[in-house]
Amino acid sequence: MTDTTFPIPAAAGRGPRRLAGRFPWLMAPAAVFYVVFFGWPLLQMLWSSIWSDGFTFAGYAEFFSEPVYWWVLGYTMVIGVVTLVLTLGIGYPVAYWLVGLNKTWTVVLMAFVLIPFWSSGLVRTYAWLVILGRQGLVNTTLISFGWIDEPMPFLGTHTAVLVGLTYYLLPYMILCLFSVMNNIDRNLMLAARNLGASPLRAFFAIFVPLTKPGVFAGSFLVFMLAVGMYITPALLGGPDQTTLPLVIALQINEALDWTLAAALSMILLVVSVAIQIFANRYVDFDKMWGGAR
């Protein structure tokens, strides 16, 4: 049915068009809300980072002069990259496998991805505390079998933080990859096979390049979430696993150094926005968000 076959009464034709001009005003409440609770706090944070009874760059100066902050920033980025590599490496084969199943099985098994995805991140991190903690399941089991005498310190290690982050973010990666893989016409691979390509060649020359949007979107999402994560390093890590969000929270809750907290937040914000701008060239956000739903 096209527009011309549908009889639109003249009066109604005028109505919507007249209304159309007014629609931007519907944005006003949300605009005010965003300005007050999003734009303003961010600007104020920028202000706080350079103003404390007069202009000061003390926060930034402290960041750039103290090697420990550089170390924390570097560690945060490394954790983000390693988490991204782990989720991609684990998620890609799983998504590939899920897409190849028949529909009933895909629906059933996707529940194993979607239920963790929807569960609270705190609950899921707490679960690892229960499993790996000093009085956690692994330790109590090992002790009850008499294999060890003292609880093993699983927590407070890089591994614990990486396990927690990978576990938390894997569903995001799988969902991003799945939504892209699911739309790939598998006949293309069949065609490649018919033209004499080996299964491996068909996979790497045809399938993998087509999944690029999902890989970029998933990687971007996982990295951003990993870098900004607070609860996972806080609960599963120790002093050696201090990430930027932990330092920011520490400045506010204990050190009460707002200037430094604001400066550190601005640095994290600048890093995130830079990555976002970089990713914008490779990630189709409309598609990504459409897929995440």
């Binding site: 609770f37 999003f38 303003w40 706090p41 961010l42 104020q44 944070m45 706080s48 951003m224 870098v227 900004g228 607070y230 969000p245 920011i248 929270a249 506010i252 707002w258 907290a261 604001a262 937040s265 994290l268 914000l269 995130s272 926005v273 976002q276």
Partner: peptide, 15 residues
């Protein structure tokens, strides 16, 4: 959705 939540939290805390 994209900006680290901790930044939003700190900004709103100040505000």
């Amino acid at each position: 959705l994209i900006i680290p939540k901790i930044i939003i939290a700190v900004g709103l805390y100040f505000l």
